[in-house]
């Protein structure tokens, strides 16, 4: 059901944990299946220098979370915003169709983390 690459990211997830002094935090969940992802980013000179995650969810949800942190690290914010659900799924050599919607929360959580960071810069109350 899952690709080898996905299983690798599920079994050995990269960047698990919290960043206590994160510059942006994004939380995304699917109320039907319960999958929830919390993504923390550290930003320096408009570039994501670190990313960590905490995820409640199935194997696909955890692998997606691991993959998105790997993809986001080192990218500028505008580059990071071009990451889509499809590109995350492709990077994992595909997701089963029924998991495409419910467990593919990474791109949305990243977008929210970036919005949170930008909101904080603008002095707005932190969201997420």
């Amino acid at each position: 059901m899952y690709s080898k690459k996905l299983m690798d990211h599920f079994t050995n997830p990269r960047n698990v944990g919290e960043i206590p002094d994160a510059d942006g935090v994004g939380m995304e969940g699917n109320p039907t299946c319960g999958d929830t992802m919390k993504l923390f980013i550290k930003v320096h000179d408009d570039r994501i220098v670190d990313a960590k995650f905490q995820t409640f969810g199935c194997g696909a949800a955890i692998a997606v979370s691991s993959m998105i942190t790997e993809m986001a690290k080192g990218k500028t914010l505008s580059e990071a915003l071009t990451i889509t659900k499809e590109s995350v799924a492709d990077a994992l050599d595909g997701l089963p169709p029924q998991k495409m919607h419910c467990s593919n929360l990474g791109a949305d959580a990243l977008r929210k983390a970036i919005e949170d960071y930008r909101g904080r810069l603008a002095g707005a109350p932190a969201a997420g």
């Binding site: 599920f10 039907t32 299946c33 999958d35 409640f56 199935c58 194997g59 696909a60 949800a61 419910c102």
Partner: peptide
């Protein structure tokens, strides 16, 4: 935590079981 992840990790240890979690069901409920 969620059932499917536990089942996958159990299977890696050659143990198979079941779960009524949403993620393991086709209906995702």
């Amino acid at each position: 935590i969620e059932g499917e992840g536990m089942l996958l990790m159990l299977q890696a240890k050659d143990i198979v079981a079941a779960s009524g979690s949403a993620c393991t069901s086709k209906a995702l409920k």
